[in-house]
Design a protein around this nucleic acid. Sequence first.
DNA 1: TGCCAGGCGGATT
DNA 2: AATCCGCATGGC
Length: 299
Amino acid sequence: MEHGRIDLSDVPGGFDLQSTLESGQSYLWWRADGQDFADDHLYGGEAWYLTTTRALGEPAVIRVRQRDGALEWQSSVDAESVLRRRLRLDDDLDAIRASAPPDDLVQRAYDTYWGMHLVRDPAFGSLISFICSAQMRVSRIHEMQQSLRETFGTPVTFDGRTYHAYPTPAQLAAATEDELRELSLGYRAPYVRKSAELVEQGTPLDVRGQPYEQARESLTEFVGVGEKVADCVLLFALDYTQAVPLDTWIRKTIDEYYPGCEQGNYTDTSRALREALGGEYAGYTQTYVFHFLRNAGDG
DNA sequence: TGCCAGGCGGATT
DNA sequence: AATCCGCATGGC
Protein backbone atom coordinates (compact mmCIF):
# COMPACT_ATOMS: atom_id res chain seq x y z
CA MET A 1 0.00 0.00 0.00
CA GLU A 2 1.29 3.41 -0.95
CA HIS A 3 0.74 6.39 1.30
CA GLY A 4 1.61 10.04 1.42
CA ARG A 5 1.08 13.43 2.93
CA ILE A 6 0.01 16.60 1.14
CA ASP A 7 1.02 19.68 3.08
CA LEU A 8 -1.85 22.16 3.08
CA SER A 9 0.07 25.14 4.42
CA ASP A 10 0.73 26.39 0.90
CA VAL A 11 -2.91 26.17 -0.23
CA PRO A 12 -4.01 29.81 -0.44
CA GLY A 13 -6.84 30.42 2.01
CA GLY A 14 -6.54 26.89 3.39
CA PHE A 15 -8.52 23.72 2.92
CA ASP A 16 -11.25 21.86 4.80
CA LEU A 17 -11.86 18.27 3.77
CA GLN A 18 -15.11 17.67 5.61
CA SER A 19 -17.03 20.65 4.29
CA THR A 20 -15.62 19.97 0.83
CA LEU A 21 -16.90 16.39 0.82
CA GLU A 22 -20.07 16.78 2.89
CA SER A 23 -21.56 19.86 1.27
CA GLY A 24 -23.76 18.11 -1.25
CA GLN A 25 -21.55 18.74 -4.29
CA SER A 26 -20.13 15.24 -4.63
CA TYR A 27 -21.79 11.89 -4.13
CA LEU A 28 -18.73 9.87 -5.08
CA TRP A 29 -17.12 9.74 -1.62
CA TRP A 30 -18.08 7.90 1.56
CA ARG A 31 -16.85 7.75 5.14
CA ALA A 32 -14.76 4.80 6.29
CA ASP A 33 -16.48 4.78 9.68
CA GLY A 34 -19.81 4.18 7.97
CA GLN A 35 -21.32 7.38 9.33
CA ASP A 36 -23.72 9.18 7.04
CA PHE A 37 -22.68 12.59 5.90
CA ALA A 38 -24.05 15.10 8.35
CA ASP A 39 -27.19 16.84 7.21
CA ASP A 40 -27.36 19.37 10.00
CA HIS A 41 -23.90 19.90 11.44
CA LEU A 42 -20.22 19.27 10.95
CA TYR A 43 -18.55 17.12 13.57
CA GLY A 44 -15.10 18.67 13.26
CA GLY A 45 -13.23 15.37 13.34
CA GLU A 46 -10.57 13.59 11.37
CA ALA A 47 -12.55 10.82 9.70
CA TRP A 48 -11.17 8.84 6.79
CA TYR A 49 -12.97 9.30 3.47
CA LEU A 50 -12.92 6.87 0.57
CA THR A 51 -13.45 7.14 -3.15
CA THR A 52 -12.44 5.25 -6.25
CA THR A 53 -10.57 6.41 -9.31
CA ARG A 54 -9.70 5.13 -12.75
CA ALA A 55 -7.42 8.07 -13.49
CA LEU A 56 -4.28 5.93 -13.19
CA GLY A 57 -5.49 2.90 -15.15
CA GLU A 58 -7.18 0.05 -13.31
CA PRO A 59 -9.75 1.12 -10.72
CA ALA A 60 -8.19 1.95 -7.35
CA VAL A 61 -9.44 2.94 -3.92
CA ILE A 62 -8.16 6.11 -2.28
CA ARG A 63 -8.46 6.73 1.46
CA VAL A 64 -7.77 10.21 2.82
CA ARG A 65 -8.14 12.26 5.97
CA GLN A 66 -7.15 15.73 7.11
CA ARG A 67 -4.83 15.89 10.11
CA ASP A 68 -2.21 18.27 11.44
CA GLY A 69 -2.41 20.64 8.50
CA ALA A 70 -2.08 17.96 5.86
CA LEU A 71 -4.01 15.46 3.83
CA GLU A 72 -2.88 11.94 4.68
CA TRP A 73 -3.70 9.40 1.99
CA GLN A 74 -3.44 5.66 1.43
CA SER A 75 -4.01 3.81 -1.82
CA SER A 76 -2.76 1.04 -4.06
CA VAL A 77 -1.53 3.77 -6.41
CA ASP A 78 0.23 7.11 -6.06
CA ALA A 79 -2.85 9.18 -5.33
CA GLU A 80 -1.36 12.62 -4.81
CA SER A 81 -2.00 13.99 -8.28
CA VAL A 82 -5.51 12.55 -8.30
CA LEU A 83 -6.30 14.20 -4.98
CA ARG A 84 -4.86 17.53 -6.01
CA ARG A 85 -7.09 17.44 -9.06
CA ARG A 86 -10.26 16.01 -7.47
CA LEU A 87 -10.10 18.42 -4.50
CA ARG A 88 -9.02 21.44 -6.56
CA LEU A 89 -6.10 22.16 -4.23
CA ASP A 90 -4.78 24.77 -6.67
CA ASP A 91 -7.81 27.03 -6.17
CA ASP A 92 -6.99 30.34 -4.53
CA LEU A 93 -9.82 30.83 -2.02
CA ASP A 94 -8.69 34.33 -1.08
CA ALA A 95 -8.93 35.47 -4.67
CA ILE A 96 -12.24 33.66 -5.15
CA ARG A 97 -13.76 35.23 -2.07
CA ALA A 98 -12.50 38.63 -3.19
CA SER A 99 -14.63 38.23 -6.32
CA ALA A 100 -17.80 37.65 -4.28
CA PRO A 101 -20.21 40.42 -3.29
CA PRO A 102 -19.95 41.91 0.24
CA ASP A 103 -23.51 40.79 1.05
CA ASP A 104 -24.19 39.57 4.58
CA LEU A 105 -25.44 36.12 3.54
CA VAL A 106 -22.46 35.48 1.27
CA GLN A 107 -19.90 36.62 3.82
CA ARG A 108 -21.45 34.56 6.61
CA ALA A 109 -21.41 31.50 4.36
CA TYR A 110 -17.72 32.00 3.55
CA ASP A 111 -16.93 32.59 7.25
CA THR A 112 -18.80 29.48 8.39
CA TYR A 113 -17.30 27.01 5.94
CA TRP A 114 -14.01 28.70 5.12
CA GLY A 115 -11.68 26.18 3.55
CA MET A 116 -14.36 24.41 1.53
CA HIS A 117 -13.23 23.86 -2.05
CA LEU A 118 -15.27 22.94 -5.06
CA VAL A 119 -14.75 19.32 -6.09
CA ARG A 120 -13.72 18.19 -9.54
CA ASP A 121 -15.58 14.91 -9.88
CA PRO A 122 -15.19 12.46 -12.77
CA ALA A 123 -17.74 13.61 -15.34
CA PHE A 124 -19.67 10.36 -15.69
CA GLY A 125 -20.19 9.85 -11.96
CA SER A 126 -21.17 13.49 -11.64
CA LEU A 127 -23.68 13.15 -14.48
CA ILE A 128 -25.33 10.04 -13.06
CA SER A 129 -25.43 11.26 -9.48
CA PHE A 130 -27.06 14.53 -10.46
CA ILE A 131 -29.57 12.73 -12.69
CA CYS A 132 -30.42 10.86 -9.50
CA SER A 133 -30.67 14.13 -7.55
CA ALA A 134 -34.02 15.21 -9.02
CA GLN A 135 -36.56 15.72 -6.22
CA MET A 136 -34.37 13.79 -3.81
CA ARG A 137 -32.69 14.45 -0.49
CA VAL A 138 -28.91 14.72 -0.32
CA SER A 139 -28.56 11.67 1.94
CA ARG A 140 -30.58 9.49 -0.43
CA ILE A 141 -28.69 10.65 -3.52
CA HIS A 142 -25.60 9.49 -1.72
CA GLU A 143 -27.16 6.13 -0.87
CA MET A 144 -28.16 5.62 -4.51
CA GLN A 145 -24.56 6.05 -5.67
CA GLN A 146 -23.41 3.53 -3.04
CA SER A 147 -25.98 1.07 -4.36
CA LEU A 148 -24.94 1.65 -7.96
CA ARG A 149 -21.30 1.02 -7.07
CA GLU A 150 -21.96 -2.10 -5.06
CA THR A 151 -24.37 -3.58 -7.60
CA PHE A 152 -22.71 -2.75 -10.91
CA GLY A 153 -19.15 -1.58 -10.15
CA THR A 154 -15.95 -3.55 -10.65
CA PRO A 155 -14.73 -5.15 -7.40
CA VAL A 156 -11.47 -3.70 -6.08
CA THR A 157 -9.49 -5.22 -3.24
CA PHE A 158 -7.81 -2.73 -0.95
CA ASP A 159 -6.26 -3.23 2.48
CA GLY A 160 -7.84 -6.66 2.84
CA ARG A 161 -11.36 -5.56 1.93
CA THR A 162 -13.41 -5.59 -1.24
CA TYR A 163 -14.78 -2.29 -2.52
CA HIS A 164 -16.47 -1.46 -5.79
CA ALA A 165 -15.44 1.18 -8.31
CA TYR A 166 -18.08 3.57 -9.60
CA PRO A 167 -19.71 1.85 -12.61
CA THR A 168 -18.53 2.63 -16.11
CA PRO A 169 -20.95 3.84 -18.81
CA ALA A 170 -20.94 0.31 -20.27
CA GLN A 171 -21.77 -1.25 -16.91
CA LEU A 172 -24.75 1.03 -16.32
CA ALA A 173 -25.92 0.85 -19.93
CA ALA A 174 -26.04 -2.94 -19.54
CA ALA A 175 -28.29 -2.68 -16.48
CA THR A 176 -32.01 -3.14 -16.97
CA GLU A 177 -34.52 -0.55 -15.91
CA ASP A 178 -35.98 -3.04 -13.41
CA GLU A 179 -32.58 -3.66 -11.86
CA LEU A 180 -32.15 0.07 -11.40
CA ARG A 181 -35.64 0.49 -9.96
CA GLU A 182 -34.78 -2.18 -7.40
CA LEU A 183 -32.17 0.24 -6.09
CA SER A 184 -34.94 2.74 -5.31
CA LEU A 185 -34.06 5.01 -8.20
CA GLY A 186 -37.74 5.39 -9.00
CA TYR A 187 -38.57 7.24 -12.20
CA ARG A 188 -34.88 8.13 -12.57
CA ALA A 189 -34.06 4.53 -13.47
CA PRO A 190 -34.66 4.83 -17.24
CA TYR A 191 -32.87 8.20 -17.30
CA VAL A 192 -29.74 6.66 -15.76
CA ARG A 193 -29.78 3.69 -18.11
CA LYS A 194 -30.40 5.74 -21.23
CA SER A 195 -27.84 8.42 -20.42
CA ALA A 196 -25.21 5.77 -19.68
CA GLU A 197 -26.00 4.29 -23.08
CA LEU A 198 -25.64 7.68 -24.77
CA VAL A 199 -22.22 8.18 -23.16
CA GLU A 200 -21.24 4.67 -24.17
CA GLN A 201 -22.29 5.40 -27.75
CA GLY A 202 -20.18 8.54 -27.89
CA THR A 203 -22.43 11.48 -27.07
CA PRO A 204 -19.95 14.11 -25.84
CA LEU A 205 -19.90 14.50 -22.06
CA ASP A 206 -16.65 16.41 -21.58
CA VAL A 207 -17.88 19.65 -23.13
CA ARG A 208 -15.01 21.75 -21.79
CA GLY A 209 -14.01 24.14 -24.51
CA GLN A 210 -17.56 25.12 -25.35
CA PRO A 211 -18.78 28.52 -24.13
CA TYR A 212 -20.64 28.16 -20.85
CA GLU A 213 -24.25 28.50 -21.96
CA GLN A 214 -23.65 26.38 -25.04
CA ALA A 215 -22.04 23.71 -22.86
CA ARG A 216 -25.13 23.69 -20.64
CA GLU A 217 -27.37 23.29 -23.66
CA SER A 218 -25.19 20.44 -24.93
CA LEU A 219 -25.51 18.46 -21.71
CA THR A 220 -29.31 18.59 -21.84
CA GLU A 221 -29.03 16.10 -24.69
CA PHE A 222 -28.71 13.44 -22.00
CA VAL A 223 -31.93 12.02 -20.60
CA GLY A 224 -32.88 13.31 -17.17
CA VAL A 225 -30.64 16.33 -17.62
CA GLY A 226 -32.29 19.73 -17.66
CA GLU A 227 -30.67 23.09 -17.12
CA LYS A 228 -30.21 22.64 -13.38
CA VAL A 229 -28.57 19.22 -13.52
CA ALA A 230 -26.44 20.40 -16.44
CA ASP A 231 -25.22 23.33 -14.34
CA CYS A 232 -24.27 20.93 -11.53
CA VAL A 233 -22.16 18.79 -13.85
CA LEU A 234 -20.51 21.86 -15.35
CA LEU A 235 -19.71 23.23 -11.88
CA PHE A 236 -18.71 20.07 -10.01
CA ALA A 237 -16.95 18.17 -12.79
CA LEU A 238 -16.13 20.31 -15.82
CA ASP A 239 -14.45 23.45 -14.42
CA TYR A 240 -17.24 25.93 -15.18
CA THR A 241 -16.88 27.84 -11.90
CA GLN A 242 -19.33 30.46 -13.14
CA ALA A 243 -22.23 27.95 -13.34
CA VAL A 244 -24.96 28.68 -10.80
CA PRO A 245 -27.41 25.76 -10.50
CA LEU A 246 -30.89 27.11 -9.73
CA ASP A 247 -32.22 24.56 -7.25
CA THR A 248 -34.96 24.96 -4.69
CA TRP A 249 -32.59 26.42 -2.08
CA ILE A 250 -31.08 28.96 -4.40
CA ARG A 251 -34.52 29.94 -5.67
CA LYS A 252 -35.51 30.66 -2.07
CA THR A 253 -32.36 32.73 -1.77
CA ILE A 254 -33.31 34.68 -4.88
CA ASP A 255 -36.79 35.37 -3.46
CA GLU A 256 -35.37 36.56 -0.17
CA TYR A 257 -32.08 38.25 -0.99
CA TYR A 258 -31.89 38.86 -4.75
CA PRO A 259 -35.49 39.41 -5.92
CA GLY A 260 -34.27 41.54 -8.81
CA CYS A 261 -32.55 38.50 -10.30
CA GLU A 262 -35.82 36.66 -10.92
CA GLN A 263 -36.38 36.94 -14.65
CA GLY A 264 -39.11 34.35 -15.18
CA ASN A 265 -36.93 31.83 -17.02
CA TYR A 266 -33.85 29.80 -16.15
CA THR A 267 -31.40 31.32 -18.61
CA ASP A 268 -32.01 34.94 -17.71
CA THR A 269 -32.38 34.35 -13.96
CA SER A 270 -29.17 32.34 -13.96
CA ARG A 271 -27.43 35.07 -15.89
CA ALA A 272 -28.58 37.75 -13.43
CA LEU A 273 -27.61 35.75 -10.34
CA ARG A 274 -24.28 34.90 -11.90
CA GLU A 275 -23.51 38.59 -12.20
CA ALA A 276 -24.81 39.28 -8.68
CA LEU A 277 -22.47 36.64 -7.30
CA GLY A 278 -19.38 38.00 -8.99
CA GLY A 279 -19.24 36.34 -12.40
CA GLU A 280 -16.27 34.04 -12.97
CA TYR A 281 -16.48 32.27 -9.59
CA ALA A 282 -20.23 32.69 -9.00
CA GLY A 283 -20.65 28.93 -8.69
CA TYR A 284 -18.07 28.82 -5.91
CA THR A 285 -20.02 31.42 -3.96
CA GLN A 286 -23.29 29.65 -4.75
CA THR A 287 -21.89 26.42 -3.29
CA TYR A 288 -20.95 28.18 -0.04
CA VAL A 289 -24.42 29.73 0.17
CA PHE A 290 -26.15 26.43 -0.62
CA HIS A 291 -24.21 24.60 2.09
CA PHE A 292 -24.74 27.41 4.59
CA LEU A 293 -28.50 27.61 4.05
CA ARG A 294 -28.97 23.86 4.14
CA ASN A 295 -26.95 23.28 7.28
CA ALA A 296 -26.67 26.46 9.31
CA GLY A 297 -29.93 28.03 8.23
CA ASP A 298 -30.32 31.67 7.35
CA GLY A 299 -31.58 32.88 10.71
C1' DT B 1 -51.68 12.50 6.49
C1' DG B 2 -49.90 15.42 3.17
C1' DC B 3 -45.85 17.80 1.89
C1' DC B 4 -41.30 18.01 0.34
C1' DA B 5 -36.68 16.62 -1.48
C1' DG B 6 -30.05 20.12 -5.31
C1' DG B 7 -36.28 18.53 -11.46
C1' DC B 8 -37.34 16.55 -15.75
C1' DG B 9 -40.04 14.89 -19.90
C1' DG B 10 -43.97 15.42 -22.50
C1' DA B 11 -48.24 17.58 -23.70
C1' DT B 12 -50.82 21.71 -24.00
C1' DT B 13 -51.55 26.50 -24.62
C1' DA C 1 -41.89 30.41 -24.61
C1' DA C 2 -44.53 29.65 -20.55
C1' DT C 3 -47.39 26.45 -17.85
C1' DC C 4 -49.33 22.10 -16.18
C1' DC C 5 -48.97 17.40 -14.92
C1' DG C 6 -47.19 12.90 -13.75
C1' DC C 7 -43.48 10.70 -11.91
C1' DA C 8 -40.92 6.87 -7.27
C1' DT C 9 -39.42 6.81 -2.90
C1' DG C 10 -38.79 7.85 1.93
C1' DG C 11 -38.58 11.09 6.02
C1' DC C 12 -41.08 13.97 8.91
